[in-house]
Design a binder for these strands. Sequence first.
DNA 1: GGAAAACTCCCCACTTTTCCCCACTTTCCC
DNA 2: GGGAAAGTGGGGAAAAGTGGGGAGTTTTCC
Lengths: 147, 147
Amino acid sequence: MARFKGQAAYSVDAKGRVAIPAKMRNALTPEAQGTFTLTKGFEKCIYAYPQDGWKVKEDEYSQLNVNNRKARHLVRMILMWAEEVSLDGQGRISLPRSLADYAGIGDRALIIGAMDRIEIWDPEAFEAYLQEQTMDQESLAEEVMGF
Amino acid sequence: MARFKGQAAYSVDAKGRVAIPAKMRNALTPEAQGTFTLTKGFEKCIYAYPQDGWKVKEDEYSQLNVNNRKARHLVRMILMWAEEVSLDGQGRISLPRSLADYAGIGDRALIIGAMDRIEIWDPEAFEAYLQEQTMDQESLAEEVMGF
DNA sequence: GGAAAACTCCCCACTTTTCCCCACTTTCCC
DNA sequence: GGGAAAGTGGGGAAAAGTGGGGAGTTTTCC
């Protein structure tokens, strides 16, 4: 499965298209077939899963208990915003209006590799997100990874 | 896995390239394939992990739970600055602008071997770092290793 | 129901950046 | 001292990024 890393800012053209960084395109496995599934991120951004990685996510959701009201709601919320997009000849995808609006994306987008997914942010929204995060990286690493 | 040691100062050319000392290049295992992953160091410098060493780090991060807010943040902070670079025919790598800026690197760079990684410093920033460290080496060794 | 607008998915064209290769200088080491 | 390896610099081809045209389809709205 592809592992994404790095970050770069790209322009979003009048047609709502953004380039996916070449480094991330090259990290895609052939199984992904140049296709991503986009969904709402937990933060104010768009998550883009390569097709093969999304399959795994779907399997996880399908194992949730349908008899649990909260689980049903979660699956709805995630799937209702999911949309499949493919790279065009120039290595771009087009952002669905609804998701771009949710993430507050205008004519620039910040693209961040985050392991199994790519995140697409409005540059200013990302700045704001960073401001909210108070914990320094060393303490965070200590708490999360526990050493 | 490679173990790096020693230090040397090199020039950074107009294209942002620095030579990796031959001694460190020779210490690389074939598995590294002449490739490094660069990230922000905890101090004001760039960390360069050989590809095989970085793989181990990445495996740790991939096991973090994406449904945990702090874990998501940590992965973002680490991976967004991570960039893969390869040695060119002359044994150089090119420093991404963003990381060079973070480390304050201009036209000279100090390259230091630090076990499983290489550190790339601005010579003056390293001087300043040394000034800040007040504890002498003997007491340091006692505190860190003398249990 | 039909025209206009919007959207999608192909292209092609241009600019900028990256990277690969060649050449020269310096250092190292026998 | 001489050859090889290491370090430094730059030119040019190829790739990446950006913008737009236009055909075909769908949606909107009168």
